[in-house]
Design a protein around this nucleic acid. Structure first.
Length: 356
DNA sequence: AAGTCGGGGCA
DNA sequence: TGCCCAGACTT
């Protein structure tokens, strides 16, 4: 922003009255902030960095409603970063099951151990950005929300609000440079953490993707894009989703089922799973069972991932040889503790239902 | 710059 | 059904 703090010109985007936006938004936030388990009250200017970091990682591409129960379980079980650093990785992975994007869980443990070695979280954006699993967004968010540092926090909410505020109609992702400049121009030096959270609350509740409520928006007098708010930001066309076919094998002996652990990288990397026929993002499964013996289809699971739609046949057998290779017999009575990702939890439910 | 990586909730 | 979500990381 310029010396008067009232307007700014950023590249292609002219920003009138840049200095008036933050006060209006913060005033609204003081009255309407969502109470969330990881949040300090408005004006606190600091929050527990462990809880802020954990919530921000969980919230990557994940809705607040989905995160809350996981956040509560994690913080109850591991109350600080040292406790999480001391936890076995596979226990953390299992606790993450169902939340998705499992590489986050592995990096979460990695990061916790780095921070435990350091003794504390770095308090500046650059130091945070160097930690595993913290990209530009999360480093800025933790610096601002946990440590009260001025940082320009740009997530999907901020992108949407800023694109509408300044009527930026360049398509994403090319628009990101202009959006970031504009976000920088309206970010205040004081309370930038509250400002970021206020932008997110605004984006979640009022400046929503569909049917934004411009009539009650605290920024409506400054918003140049409200006439076509629902058309902004302009998004690129999506690629068609691949359709794949696969088989999962339910091998049961004496009240236990044979579970394997998936390779660390790739789909559902590092997670416990039923043995399957190698379906992945590039090809259908082979259909070859891991051992002989009267296989029957118990049912099918249709499961949609980010870029693949999978039709998984759940196969059960009567008897047969014991499986070879790495794996473990998991007691059926404790199957809910195995940490199966949703695809295999659904497949297990199909097998159990057929069994009766 | 484009591709990979989950799952649930919503219209 | 399609779209979206407090993105990070690899190629």
């Amino acid at each position: 922003m310029d010396a008067r703090g009232q307007s700014a010109k950023c590249g292609k985007v002219d920003i009138p009255r840049a200095g008036s936006i933050a006060p209006a938004l913060l005033g609204w936030y003081d009255a309407h902030a969502r109470a969330l388990p990881w949040r300090a009250p408005p004006g606190a200017n600091r929050a527990d960095p462990y809880r802020v970091w954990l919530s921000e990682v969980m919230l990557q591409q994940t809705t607040v409603a989905a995160v809350i129960p996981y956040f509560e379980r994690f913080t109850t079980r591991w109350s600080d970063v040292a406790a999480l650093a001391a936890a076995p990785e596979e226990e953390v992975m299992a606790a993450w099951a169902g939340l998705g994007y499992y590489s986050r869980a592995r990096r979460l443990v990695e990061c916790a151990r780095v921070v435990a070695d350091l003794g504390a979280f770095p308090e500046d954006e650059a130091g945070l950005r160097a930690l595993p699993g913290l990209g530009a967004y999360t480093a800025a968010a933790v610096a601002a929300i946990a440590f009260g540092q001025r940082a320009v926090v740009v997530d999907a909410n901020v992108e949407r609000v800023v694109a509408r505020l300044f009527d930026i109609d360049e398509p994403l992702p090319a628009a990101r440079a202009a959006i970031r400049e504009a976000a920088d121009a309206i970010t205040p030096d004081a309370r930038s953490g509250d400002f970021a959270q206020a932008m997110m609350d605004l984006g979640a509740g009022i400046c929503s993707v569909r049917a934004p409520q411009c009539l009650i928006c605290p920024l409506r007098s400054d918003c140049r894009g409200q006439a076509r708010a629902e058309q902004l930001p302009v998004k690129p066309p999506k690629k068609a989703k691949a359709q794949r076919i696969g088989h999962a094998w339910w091998i049961e002996r004496d009240g236990a089922v044979w579970l394997i652990r998936r390779p660390a990288s790739g789909m559902l990397g590092g997670m416990r799973a039923l043995p399957d026929d190698g379906w992945n993002a590039r090809r259908d499964g082979s259909g070859n069972p891991p051992l002989d013996g009267g296989w029957q289809e118990a049912g099918r699971v249709a499961h949609v991932f980010t870029h693949v739609a999978l039709d998984l046949a759940v196969m059960v057998s009567q008897g047969g040889d014991n499986p070879s290779g790495e794996g473990e017999w998991w007691p059926l009575a404790r199957l809910d503790e195995a940490g199966l990702p949703t695809l295999y939890a659904r497949a297990a439910a199909v097998a159990m239902a057929r069994k009766g």
